[in-house]
Nucleic acid binder design. Structure first.
Length: 356
DNA sequence: AAACCGGGGTC
DNA sequence: GACCCAGGTTT
């Protein structure tokens, strides 16, 4: 019988996709791709990858950039801590490694935003060093290969999968091709639903296929339902009615460093107009008038849902004083596109720019 | 170990 | 709607 790695690599050489980051061995470019690809599908990353490398072609260029511009290029991709960590790590590579991306596991693993799997991928793809990886695709492939009946989120199960990834890689002659092929198999054949087992090059090695349990693998524990919040949001115009107030969120946590229209969460029994008035008084020390509704925006985050209730507002008394926000002020609508906004706020901006 | 951290594609 | 994606960090 053909070995697992030979069968897998032979399939990849024929069926593997031609992706931008598979055409380079340049560590920095691969690094950018690996960070963008965390929890993000290939098709979504491709345009961001090209734009990011065009604007920041080197570690030095990225390290020298303003965080706001880095976030602007990340706008819409989500998990913005990835961009903040990448930016910070670039500065770390300049300071600690003379601008050259490190080539040892410990040094790569020490960079912010790079964990065990991403470090393994980078060392393999940039330096041809055989290090195992274990992303979502590989977890699924290996849990089926083993017919693993323990929830893959459990630490003991995950360690088993790491051991299997290590073991299978050791049987491969070409680590680069093997690791690419393992992920490609998960993305194209060994898919979450309806895996294409008849087309699988390693079906003869697969215990779940033999047992007919592939649809039940990997075993996942169901997640708790996410809470919902109603948020009152102000499109706050200045006295001349030609500028709106935007502010920058705190540097860490949810949507850290991005810009937004001010507002906050509705309290029990409160009507949305009162929420907006209260929040702007608390956040900015302003007395405002709440006028016509602009739009309602529903949005789902990883662990909660929101409905944004947006109103045209104007200042009755006072000057805005920033509390939680780090920057903010009245800006012409035409300048807001230069700032990085989260998706839900971009919808508001779209309405303001097209509707009025 | 569990929570936190976005957005989009898919069924 | 539910599930999942080239995961890592924080608590």
């Amino acid at each position: 019988m053909t070995s697992f790695s030979d069968a897998l690599c032979a399939w990849y050489r024929v069926a593997g996709r031609d992706l931008p980051w598979r055409r380079t061995r340049e560590p920095y470019a691969l690094w950018v791709s690996e960070i963008m690809l965390q929890q993000t599908q290939v098709e979504a990353v491709i345009p961001y990858y090209a734009r990011f490398l065009e604007r920041f072609p080197t570690v030095a260029a990225l390290a020298a950039a303003d965080q706001g511009e880095v976030l602007k290029l990340w706008e819409g991709l989500g998990y913005y801590a990835r961009a903040r960590n990448l930016h910070r790590a670039a500065q770390q590579v300049m300071a600690e490694h003379g601008g050259r991306f490190p080539s040892t596991f410990d040094a790569v693993f020490a960079l912010p935003g790079i964990g065990r799997s991403t470090a393994g991928a980078l060392l393999t793809f940039a330096f041809d060093q055989p290090h195992p990886l274990l992303d979502g695709n590989v977890k699924r492939v290996l849990s089926r290969l083993e017919d693993l009946d323990a929830p893959v989120a459990r630490a003991s199960a995950e360690e088993r999968l790491w051991a299997r990834s290590t073991e299978l890689l050791a049987g491969a002659t070409d680590a680069w091709t093997f690791n690419q092929a393992l992920m490609e198999l998960g993305a194209r054949v060994c898919t979450p639903r309806a895996p294409d087992c008849p087309a699988c090059p390693v079906a003869t090695h697969c215990r779940a296929f033999a047992a007919g349990t592939q649809a039940m693998r990997p075993v996942k524990v169901k997640k708790a339902p996410v809470p919902h919040k109603d948020i009152g949001v102000a499109v706050l115009w200045n006295a001349a009615r030609d500028q709106v107030f935007v502010q920058r969120r705190p540097p860490d946590g949810l949507l850290g460093g991005l810009w937004e229209f001010p507002g906050g969460k509705r309290e029990p029994g409160e009507v949305m107009e009162d929420t907006v008035r209260r929040e702007l008084h608390e956040e900015l020390g302003l007395d405002i008038a709440v006028g016509a509704p602009v739009v309602r925006v529903k949005h789902t985050y990883s662990h909660f849902k929101v409905t944004l209730h947006v109103f045209h507002c104007h200042v009755l008394r006072g000057e805005p004083t920033l509390r939680a926000a780090t920057e903010g002020g009245f800006r012409p609508l035409s300048e807001l596109r230069k700032l990085a906004f989260p998706k839900a706020n971009l919808r508001i901006l779209d309405v303001l720019l097209s509707g009025s």
